[in-house]
Design a protein around this nucleic acid. Structure first.
Lengths: 236, 236
DNA sequence: AAAAAACTGTGATCCGTGTCATAGTTTGAA
DNA sequence: TTCAAACTATGACACGGATCACAGTTTTTT
């Protein structure tokens, strides 16, 4: 596996995480001592809905999905967390159970800090609280947008907007457009935008037929006409 | 109108708001000085998507809806804020524009505190930051549930769950069940759960036909069989 | 109190997406 | 390299909710 070797040997992860940016070099060294590392394989569960974790978890390397299992047997993906993101915030302030499950999408290395250590840290450095608030607000905005998009039950718009979101987060320059490494399978995309696997397939196919995107295998995709997606995701 | 008379004469609103609960009597007196009150009529806009308000707004008396206007002309309601709730948090930490519009559902009195005053307060009383974090987490959880519910596009479940939510927040005891004063019109409910006015009407009618609820005019509703709603909102 | 405006309920029809079925493709293991 | 398991694409069909239309009701205005 050999993920996060750096991280284990030096306390590097502290530097990679925005919420710890208010710390001085010396302080972050001390914080690094408090952190426990753990590696997970693709598919491993990191936490389960309802569980009481009482740790803040930071993604050091890799990618995980956070989701809820719905009553009708579906799986609603809420977040995709990558390097630098954190989760488990719910269990820190109050003693609340996790409101979603988290599962590794690829081999992943996580940093964990205990509830008590973190609370002490928060008292000593209120600016960390600010950082967390900022991130919570960002996350709220993401979910607000998700609600907006799911409320307007237009399938095309949902697929377009998820592609734009992935392009923003995981896209890289390419002579003919933006190359996106998809973090999710077709089923995963469906679980993210509230459609079925089949519908996502069809929408992607027709986008390709229209020359808007180009499917490269199942895990990559080239966005050729970004404007068309932007139009499709909003007005038509 | 005559809303919030108390509030204007004494600084009472400070006491009614959870986020200021860490303040001592004397401190809250001082904070009350910083607060500006303002009254709005039903239908008035308090803030508009994209606007830079740079104030934290607290609902003293009344009720407002927070929503986004979607590209396809719909209106997606994100939150309903009542007495004690706050909004405008986005503009406080960073200088971000509001991610939603806010409009008064009834005549409403609001308390506002400026960005700089609030930040000073936050520095002096880190516990206020904690309270805000808690509330942001609560709000996140609400939205996560909304996403889950909108993702599973079953109309019956959406209506059932919104009724349960309203019962929780606005319901009162009644010999035959729970009496709910609906904060939204049929169209409003539709905008909240991502359906059309007509579908909401139909679902409510059939719930009434099944003896689960009883419609009392357009603004009230009696939940007779809460269990049926709970079953309908999850598994079937 | 009367009139206007806004809101609600319900039928008829249409369309999009879910569901089911099946074949093709990719991925990973032996 | 071969084989199996998992994933993907696509057609056929059904069904639920959107849309359109209109009548009835409630609320607001003057």
């Amino acid at each position: 596996m050999a993920v996060c070797v750096n991280c284990r040997h030096h306390g590097l992860c502290v530097h990679r995480v925005a919420i710890f940016s208010p710390l001085s070099a010396e302080e972050s060294h001390r914080v690094a001592e408090l952190i426990v590392h753990k590696e997970y394989h693709k598919g491993d569960f990191i936490m389960t809905e309802g569980e009481q974790l009482s740790r803040l978890v930071i993604v050091q390397e890799g990618q995980v999905k956070a989701f809820r299992s719905t009553a009708d047997g579906r799986e609603q993906i809420l977040y995709i967390f990558s390097s630098g993101d954190f989760f488990g915030e719910k269990n820190l302030l109050r003693n609340q159970p996790a409101s979603y499950s988290v599962q590794a999408l690829v081999d992943t290395c996580l940093c964990m800090i205990s509830r008590s250590d973190f609370q002490q840290l928060l008292r000593a450095h209120p600016e960390i609280g600010m950082k967390i608030m900022e991130e919570l607000c960002r996350r709220l905005e993401r979910l607000e947008t998700a609600v907006e998009s799911l409320g307007a039950r237009d399938g095309d718009a949902r697929v377009s907007s998820v592609l734009l979101e992935f392009a923003e987060r995981y896209g890289e320059e390419h002579p003919r457009g933006v190359l996106v490494r998809l973090p999710l399978s077709r089923q995963g995309i469906a679980d993210y935008v509230g459609l079925t696997r089949e519908t996502v397939s069809r929408k992607l196919s027709s986008l390709q037929a229209e020359g808007v995107v180009e499917l490269i295998g199942n895990k990559k995709l080239l966005i050729i006409d970004k404007t068309a997606l932007e139009m499709g995701s909003s007005q038509d």
